[in-house]
Amino acid sequence: MSEPVSALRRARYAGFVTVEEAGLQGMVQIRGDLSSDAFTSAVSDAAGVPMPGLREASLDGRNGLLWMSPDELMLLCPYPEADRAMARLQATLSDTHHLALNVSDARAMFTLQGNGVRDVLAKLAPVDMAPDAFRPGMLRRTRLAQVAAAFWLRSDTQAEVICFRSVAPYMMELLSTAARPGSAVGLHGG
């Protein structure tokens, strides 16, 4: 049996912010009616975290739920548990219209650590990264330079970014370039 590997095998770059490919991360893409209690409670049970609100990330360690669109959520869990979480979801939702798909191998995740995380993201995305506008726990689905991505803050010094696995090398170079020592803008600390 082949051994699963992440897109960049935990590539790391230390600039004014440390950029690291986060390694294997379980991700289950879920679609359904977010106004249905049956759907939201099943999803929340499978993820082990409360439902996120509009444009929020509900996180507990490696587990989490991300609000992706008015009818879409992303479930985060440790890599080996993704299939189990999806099976549990499908069992509880057998009578409810929904879609669930294990996309762990089709996505890549990056962690950014340092005082300048807001600066790095502000360089690449058309998003207001001011501390009072984008707070930890909020999620934004947008583009980083030329590729689609979603990111959220775990704290004021730690951010996580997900993107398609096919663009992981581009994303790594992009984040590394934006985090190059001496290139801090200093608008948001760092």
């Binding site: 509009l54 444009r55 669109s69 008015p70 058309p126 934004r140 947008t142 583009r143």
Partner: peptide, 12 residues
């Protein structure tokens, strides 16, 4: 009107 983001042109 769906996600409430004030999106600029390149995101649309």
């Amino acid at each position: 009107p769906y996600c409430g983001v004030q999106a600029e042109e390149t995101e649309l």
